[in-house]
Amino acid sequence: MKSLKHVTGLLVVAALMLGLAAGPAPVHAADDEVLKIDWTDLIPKEVSDETISELMEKGAKLDEENDTIFYDPKIFPMVKTLNGKTVRIPGYVVPLDMELTEIKEFLLVPYFGACIHVPPPPPNQIIYVKTKKPLNLKGLDYAVEVTGKISTAIKESGVANTGYTLESKAIVPYEEK
């Protein structure tokens, strides 16, 4: 009888090891898979640096003539394949509307001082984050890591506007490793 127990034990261990060896699921993400990305992932690989700065300049010229400041999504490249994925990305917080002391909406940008930097980050380097649980921010110069579902196309007030938006599930302080 002892040997039967040993055999069962061995079988259980073997099963567990096989399960572990099957390993982490491959990275063509399932819907609940969290993709760890950084800011360069938000710019399509086929677009060069020069194109981005050209587009920023062209965008600025369009401003004065038509007095609009929208970046046409057809002109400004976004990474469409990220649409609907759950991602995790670190960044700095630019608070938008605050309800009392709670930050429920903010822009996530790659560097601190985006609002005073000239030029500001291009539209595909800004993420408009909405969070149900208010963010407790230690200071503007503290980075955070945001996890949530990102989308690439938004249409507001009948005018298409370029930018990533994200419904945040979790926000934690960012620790440099």
């Binding site: 400041i69 938008l96 822009l107 030029p119 500001p120 800004i126 408009y128 506007n161």
Partner: peptide, 13 residues
């Protein structure tokens, strides 16, 4: 603003 994403551009303008 109509869209919060426009805030940096408008500020710069």
């Amino acid at each position: 603003l109509k869209s919060k994403l426009a805030v940096f551009r408008q500020q710069r303008r």
